[in-house]
Design a protein around this nucleic acid. Structure first.
Lengths: 216, 216
DNA sequence: GTCTATATCCCGATAGAC
DNA sequence: GTCTATCGGGATATAGAC
């Protein structure tokens, strides 16, 4: 199956000299997002991506040192979409408890609806986030949004705020990861249930937050 | 912890034509555990494993249909160790709240100390757990232990028990996954902190469990 | 039934030509 | 910047020795 496929994308009328791509770097990122969404991070390959874009397997290496560098670029884009998913359902007019619940739900929903992008972010390891400033910044923006919302609770006690923030993050991540570990497209009903549970669990965490203290 | 070790394989002095491996299937599982612990699931390869065991790349296929089938067998073993890690620090003499906290801590600790084995269990997808009965049983044993402990709380309300059980599982999983997503060996101090936080978060969840109700 | 030998195909990465 | 050519490695399938 799948022949060499030289279908070339460049239709430019001229003498069809398909040297040089318009903007291969951007095309690689776009194509990677698409391909990863189809196959998942694990079965994404540079070779297949190159084939689709009509360039040879060596071409991408002019723009990215290796496969992981490209994935890091995809992760940055994924984190931007992730941040939107977190905040889109949490209008600032709502109370902090409501917003935090909505963020947890958005967290789970994004993971379930875009499992491939979610996987790119969290299967690369945070080390890369330290290696690539853009990636680290994008991630810290997400955590910062959560922390800022939590801070509205614990004005004085920053230590408690941090613990609660991490607890909420871990909880949302747990629901999300357990959901996306399942292969195949998740049932929309399962997504809704998990998202709602994440929101409720977040509120339960807020209720019982005194138990988070070091003394416990 | 248990070194079954297949030793041998072919020390027989004779004319060194060691046809037949003593017990290749067992050796494959043992070797896979070891190799995965060294390299992680992602970079584990049947070829390398075969090389180490002194057999050709085709030999494993006599015992496992493919790479994933072998990984499933490894996952069963991993889940047994996982279950022990959960229960070892949660003696039945303790109160349920204490035990649940200890289980959450054990969950995180196992993930951090045996990231490769943890990864085998949770990077395969639960679908396999439905495909392979042994795997499903081993997983349900883990969840069952958690649920039984939660049930001591909510005698009457099984629905609330299920929600709380899932919430605790998700929380522990979240702390564990966020920790293991980091490449490299985690700092022991980080492990302790995460395990303690997981235990405290579990107790916070128990405290605020009324918010888990559907009405919320 | 168990393993060797072999062969195909795909992938990541690099060197050097244009 | 891209292509051609190529290397090393891994997954998998099959034929045949024992």
């Amino acid at each position: 199956m799948s022949r060499p496929r030289r279908a070339v994308t460049r239709v430019s009328g001229k003498h069809a000299k398909p040297y040089h791509h318009g903007d291969l770097k951007a095309a690689l990122i776009d194509g990677a997002v698409e391909l990863i969404s189809e196959r998942g991070v694990r079965r994404f390959s540079l070779a297949e991506l190159s084939r689709r874009l009509g360039v040879t397997v060596a071409a991408p290496y002019r723009h990215f040192d290796n496969r992981d560098e490209l994935l890091a670029a995809v992760a940055v884009r994924a984190l931007e979409a992730f941040w939107e998913a977190l905040t889109i359902e949490a209008p600032e007019t709502d109370a902090p408890e409501q917003r935090l619940g909505a963020m947890a739900a958005g967290y789970v929903r994004f993971a379930a609806e875009q499992p491939a992008l979610f996987g790119v972010v969290f299967s690369l390891g945070l080390d890369k986030k330290k290696r690539y400033p853009e990636l680290r910044d994008a991630y810290e923006k997400v955590e910062g949004t959560l922390q800022a919302c939590v801070a509205e609770f614990c004005h004085s006690d920053t230590e408690a705020a941090e613990a609660l923030s991490h607890a909420i993050e871990a909880t949302a991540h747990g629901y999300a990861a357990l959901l996306t570990d399942q292969p195949g497209p998740p049932d929309p009903a399962d997504i809704d249930r998990a998202a709602q549970q994440a929101a409720r669990t977040t509120r339960a965490l807020i209720e019982g937050r005194t138990a988070l203290r070091l003394s416990a």
